[in-house]
């Protein structure tokens, strides 16, 4: 129903939208399939303070709206669907979008990464009833209540700091005795009187006391093996991300963690298929590096199509 396109981009975070901007300006009229997590991870953040050009910072959703509008201004077409299947065995590649279908002469994959969970059955059962992976979505529900954040990286500390706006107290639970997070985020969190730290601690279970809403966490100190209970009404899981690559299993080369492997720019192992952003980057994972790699993917796709004689 979308016909055959020069360039199809799957994903609409900073990588996908920058690829769309460059491909549109190269007159390739790209089609962007935005996906269920349209706008990407920045839609779940508040102020972005490290995107160059915004002296006073910018709200994540506002930055994404601006990127989307900029790509559209040059002729990128947006589809608010979700891709359920791709066939990369021959060009043009076929992409199934909800009930529709599109063929792509060149494909740019920018499906990003999504929040990882601990993997406890109780965690899944209580998702939306006290367990969350999105502080900006769900912080509101915990006004005046004690909560916990699990993790030790930048996103865990950012969530903990943000959640002190609502919560009576935030306990940060981390498996180690040092944080992975950047110095500036650590200083902010250490200085916040509403945040305390449970070091060397793992979560054994999320408890609900039979009431269907979180009441506490069963914890264990990994050094002393001492077990304890922390009474909280909310648990925010921020233990990292995993790449959204299940669509491409068996079709594209990935590393052991499932990240797409790119080389010579944004090229995957299939000619005409390019990847950018967090789906192929487990190291930098910044909005600006995602945007930069989106630009690379668009230029690589443009050269590929030129070579085919588009």
């Amino acid at each position: 129903m979308y016909g055959r396109r020069n360039v199809v981009i799957i994903g609409s975070g900073p990588a996908g939208l920058t690829a769309a901007l460059y491909a549109a300006r190269a007159n390739l009229t790209p089609l962007v399939i935005e996906g269920v997590e349209a706008g990407g991870q920045l839609m779940l953040t508040t102020a972005v303070e490290n995107f160059p050009g915004f002296t006073d910072g910018i709200m994540g959703p506002d930055l994404m709206a601006a990127m989307r509008a900029q790509a559209e201004r040059f002729g990128a077409e947006m589809v608010r669907g979700n891709v359920s299947k791709v066939d990369l065995s021959r060009a043009p590649f076929t992409i199934t979008v909800d009930e529709g279908m599109v063929e792509a002469r060149a494909l740019i994959i920018a499906t990003g990464a999504s929040a990882k969970l601990l993997g406890l059955p109780s965690e899944r059962r209580l998702m939306g009833h006290g367990v969350s992976t999105c502080a900006t979505c769900d912080g509101f529900f915990f006004r005046g209540k004690p909560i916990a954040v699990i993790g030790g990286g930048d996103s865990a500390l950012e969530e903990a700091t943000f959640l002190t706006r609502f919560a009576s107290h935030v306990t940060l639970i981390h498996r180690r005795d040092t944080l992975r997070a950047s110095k500036i985020m650590q200083d902010k969190a250490f200085a916040n009187p509403k945040i305390s730290f449970a070091w060397d601690t793992e979560v054994l279970d999320v408890q609900d006391g039979g009431g269907g809403g979180v009441t506490g966490l069963a914890l264990r100190n990994v050094k002393t093996q001492v077990e304890s209970t922390l009474p909280v009404e909310g648990v925010f899981v921020a233990i990292g991300h995993e790449p959204n690559t299940s669509l491409f299993k068996g079709q594209l080369d990935m590393n052991a963690a499932g990240y797409l492997i790119t080389q010579g720019g944004a090229k995957t192992n299939v000619h005409g298929v390019f990847a950018c952003g967090d789906v192929q980057d487990h190291i930098y994972r910044q909005a600006i590096t995602a945007a930069g790699s989106g630009c690379m993917a668009a230029i690589d796709a443009e050269r590929y199509l030129e070579h085919l004689g588009h």
Binding site: V36, E37, M43, L44, D98, C137
Partner: peptide
């Protein structure tokens, strides 16, 4: 809610 980005992203699926 208005302020929930993922909620807005889901609107087309609900409409459909």
């Amino acid at each position: 809610a208005e302020w929930c980005g993922p909620c807005r992203a889901m609107e087309p699926a609900i409409d459909s």
